[in-house]
């Protein structure tokens, strides 16, 4: 098969998959919700009705109304504006953390699945040991060890924590791929290992990696929100959703539920939307 024929075949597969996705209701719902939040993350300041830090002292713990759609918190800040603006923080951090985890995990998984032997065995045992510890415990230990928290530290911690999961998934896919003829052909062409891994094998395990990426992204949303909730994530008082929930949850007991409910719903909606997309991709890639 010539290069052009192969390219055409790839384009056909891609357009077929896109067509299937367009018909998938779960994907459409998921993509719409996620699209809204991505839009909010980019243009949040334009959609928000007030500055996220603006305090209206006349409207402390005010219930949802026409003036304040999602009500106000105990500092008189507009919950709607803070939820919209807060989307940028959680989405960007989660995306970058997942990207880091996917890059590290894919690299290690490719190497382990292709090289096999002792390298594979030792690496996988180490990754399994890391995976055995609950994500939040590792994250909290890391924050405690570093002694402070920030967006970058959160990204590094979550990226590191996701690495073993991605590596295991990619490794499993590579184990099957590495026995196929195109890999043997590349070896016969005396291509170097990096070329074989990233130019030959990686494109063929990409669907697996994409699905794994979306699954991890959903977990990352929860992980970022949980770390913020525990006070080990971002700046105190940040409009980040987890921080908002942490700052306001105790108000529920005084019947002020809105500052907690809306950021919680936002977290849930993003996580659900990503899961819907992930399920649809699984179907499309026939994994």
């Amino acid at each position: 098969m010539s290069d052009e024929t192969a390219k055409q075949a790839q384009q056909t597969v891609l357009s077929e998959r896109l067509a299937v996705l367009k018909k998938n209701k779960a994907f459409i719902v998921g993509a719409s919700i996620l699209g809204f939040w991505v839009f909010s993350a980019i243009f949040g300041k334009l959609i928000a009705r007030y500055d996220q830090d603006f305090m209206d002292y006349e409207y402390i713990n005010s219930a949802p109304s026409l003036k304040y759609w999602f009500g106000t918190d105990s500092n008189g800040r507009d919950v709607y504006s803070r939820v919209i603006v807060g989307s940028r923080i959680i989405i960007v951090i989660s995306f970058l953390a997942t990207l880091l985890g996917a890059f590290l995990g894919a690299s290690l998984g490719l190497a382990a699945g292709y090289l096999k032997g002792k390298f594979d065995m030792i690496l996988m045992r180490i990754l399994e040991a890391i995976s055995a510890i609950p994500v939040i415990i590792i994250a909290l230990l890391a924050v405690a060890a570093i002694g402070r928290s920030s967006s970058i530290i959160t990204i590094l911690i979550i990226g590191f924590i996701f690495t073993p999961n991605v590596a295991r998934t990619v490794r499993a896919a590579v184990l099957g791929e590495s026995e196929l003829e195109y890999v043997a052909a590349a070896k016969l062409r005396t291509e170097n290992t990096a070329h074989i891994l990233f130019r030959e094998v990686l494109p063929n395990v990409l669907p697996t990696l994409i699905v794994e990426f979306t699954v991890r992204l959903g977990y990352a949303i929860f992980a970022v929100a949980t770390l913020s909730f525990l006070g080990a994530g971002l700046e105190a008082g940040s409009p980040d959703w987890g921080t908002q929930v942490a700052d306001t949850w105790s108000l529920i007991f005084t019947n002020v539920w809105w500052p907690t409910l809306f950021p919680s719903l936002a977290i849930a909606s993003v996580a659900v939307s990503i899961n819907l997309i992930s399920d649809a991709l699984l179907e499309v890639f026939e994994l």
């Binding site: 830090d53 603006f54 305090m55 500092n75 800040r77 105190a236 008082g237």
Partner: peptide
């Protein structure tokens, strides 16, 4: 609460 007041 006070720190948010100062920040704002």
């Amino acid at each position: 609460k006070f720190t948010q007041f100062v920040k704002s």
